[in-house]
Measured scan of single mutants.
Amino acid sequence: MSGNGNAAATAEENSPKMRVIRVGTRKSQLARIQTDSVVATLKASYPGLQFEIIAMSTTGDKILDTALSKIGEKSLFTKELEHALEKNEVDLVVHSLKDLPTVLPPGFTIGAICKRENPHDAVVFHPKFVGKTLETLPEKSVVGTSSLRRAAQLQRKFPHLEFRSIRGNLNTRLRKLDEQQEFSAIILATAGLQRMGWHNRVGQILHPEECMYAVGQGALGVEVRAKDQDILDLVGVLHDPETLLRCIAERAFLRHLEGGCSVPVAVHTAMKDGQLYLTGGVWSLDGSDSIQETMQATIHVPAQHEDGPEDDPQLVGITARNIPRGPQLAAQNLGISLANLLLSKGAKNILDVARQLNDAH
């Protein structure tokens, strides 16, 4: 009898209710805020589980004197976190989706994509230029951005401005803007500013005609071990179906173009009346040469937790077992079709030249 009692006690200790789920994140304040929001949602869904947040620095956090596009290494903000995932030191990792490459290392998958916040870019102005827009900034004003995508589009749109690289986390960039006289304004992701509670610093939100956004911008991705079915089931509740389908289309477009950090590629997606609209573009580094096109596809946005595919093969690095396969494939095909259209119009040449120029500098 006593033996059975011990077995029952052991089973209770090993039951999922007692389990601590370890969540990996970057150390920056924004990353911690984003991770806290994901953990809060998981806690609400699984009140019996405990969650421990483990923060670590990544290569991208450490190399702050070089433009991201020049470092010449993929997975700048993800490699150390993936290493911890691989060694079973954490069970899942919360990322900004735009930091996750469209091809993940073997053994990993994006197990959830959370509801997207505003994906557009924002302009934050130096205190002396508050009330201005990019259009009304004085001639030769210097605007800071760490992104080739932003610089290429904005140089084309605002030729009277000069664009220079600015690195560091959000706090560091804002301090550089406010305390030094080098920059009249800087460009940042609206979602990051909003998550930090800095709505009052948003001086201008850039519309798609001015600057399309990065693939996955404004959404959070939760990376897990691809074979860890328990954790895949656990994080599945975080999937937002519309965000998922938009981001599958965007990531398929980028992957098929073979774009990345070192080339200016941008997108804009919208879901309306059962249609998914995808606009994508590529630019030369100075913005003088560009190709942009829009395509659409009829896609039914499923309700969360309709029964999805059981075999769960990944699409552009994403596993969404609780979302039907048909809409996911339709979104992926839309991204591939748009990429093929741009490639047929000469996108590869623009991107190759951009890559060579970026590598040469």
Results as ranks from 00 to 15, higher is better:
residue 77 F to W: 10
residue 116 R to D: 04
residue 120 H to V: 08
residue 255 R to W: 12
residue 346 G to E: 15
residue 181 Q to W: 10
residue 38 V to G: 02
residue 138 P to E: 09
residue 48 G to M: 07
residue 75 S to N: 14
residue 116 R to V: 02
residue 284 S to P: 00
residue 166 I to E: 02
residue 335 G to K: 02
residue 245 L to V: 10
residue 296 Q to S: 08
residue 55 A to M: 08
residue 80 E to G: 08
residue 214 A to W: 00
residue 85 L to M: 11
residue 98 K to S: 02
residue 209 E to S: 06
residue 355 R to D: 15
residue 50 Q to I: 09
residue 161 L to S: 07
residue 222 V to I: 15
residue 68 L to R: 11
residue 222 V to G: 02
residue 88 N to W: 14
residue 301 V to T: 03
residue 284 S to N: 09
residue 312 D to I: 03
residue 272 K to W: 15
residue 267 V to Y: 00
residue 205 I to Y: 15
residue 305 H to V: 10
residue 348 K to R: 15
residue 71 I to T: 09
residue 163 F to P: 11
residue 325 R to G: 14
residue 73 E to T: 14
residue 268 H to C: 07
residue 253 F to R: 00
residue 258 E to P: 06
residue 225 R to V: 07
residue 224 V to W: 03
residue 243 T to F: 00
residue 157 K to E: 07
residue 253 F to E: 01
residue 347 A to W: 00
residue 288 S to L: 13
residue 316 V to Y: 02
residue 241 P to C: 14
residue 252 A to C: 00
residue 62 K to F: 07
residue 223 E to R: 02
residue 342 L to S: 08
residue 63 I to T: 00
residue 285 L to S: 01
residue 282 V to Q: 05
residue 114 C to Q: 12
residue 132 K to T: 10
residue 146 S to G: 12
residue 271 M to T: 06
residue 100 L to N: 01
residue 350 I to Y: 15
residue 215 V to R: 04
residue 310 E to W: 04
residue 239 H to V: 03
residue 81 L to A: 04
residue 168 G to R: 01
residue 179 E to R: 09
residue 132 K to I: 11
residue 218 G to D: 02
residue 53 I to K: 11
residue 100 L to A: 04
residue 254 L to A: 02
residue 309 P to F: 14
residue 335 G to I: 00
residue 121 D to E: 07
residue 134 L to Y: 00
residue 241 P to W: 14
residue 37 S to Y: 05
residue 258 E to K: 15
residue 222 V to C: 10
residue 242 E to H: 15
residue 233 D to L: 04
residue 143 V to M: 10
residue 192 G to V: 06
residue 76 L to W: 10
residue 97 L to C: 07
residue 43 K to E: 09
residue 324 P to F: 03
residue 341 L to D: 15
residue 149 R to E: 01
residue 152 A to M: 10
residue 304 Q to H: 08
residue 153 Q to N: 01
residue 96 S to A: 13
residue 248 I to L: 10
residue 321 R to K: 15
residue 147 S to Y: 04
residue 168 G to V: 01
residue 314 Q to L: 13
residue 83 H to R: 13
residue 350 I to A: 05
residue 95 H to S: 05
residue 299 I to C: 15
residue 94 V to T: 06
residue 227 K to P: 01
residue 93 V to Y: 03
residue 76 L to Q: 10
residue 124 V to F: 07
residue 45 S to I: 15
residue 187 I to G: 07
residue 46 Y to C: 09
residue 357 L to Y: 11
residue 42 L to K: 02
residue 263 V to K: 15
residue 63 I to F: 12
residue 310 E to T: 03
residue 87 K to W: 12
residue 287 G to S: 06
residue 42 L to I: 09
residue 155 Q to R: 11
residue 128 K to Y: 09
residue 164 R to M: 11
residue 292 Q to S: 14
residue 164 R to I: 09
residue 229 Q to L: 09
residue 127 P to M: 03
residue 213 Y to G: 09
residue 221 G to A: 07
residue 178 D to F: 06
residue 140 K to G: 11
residue 135 E to G: 09
residue 222 V to E: 06
residue 87 K to R: 13
residue 336 I to K: 02
residue 213 Y to N: 10
residue 261 C to G: 03
residue 289 D to L: 08
residue 266 A to E: 05
residue 322 N to G: 01
residue 359 D to E: 12
residue 253 F to D: 01
residue 81 L to C: 08
residue 199 H to Y: 14
residue 119 P to H: 10
residue 215 V to A: 09
residue 354 A to L: 04
residue 89 E to A: 10
residue 296 Q to M: 02
residue 112 A to S: 09
residue 104 L to M: 14
residue 229 Q to D: 13
residue 268 H to P: 04
residue 311 D to I: 04
residue 49 L to A: 14
residue 201 R to Y: 15
residue 248 I to E: 01
residue 193 L to H: 04
residue 43 K to G: 09
residue 352 D to T: 07
residue 68 L to E: 08
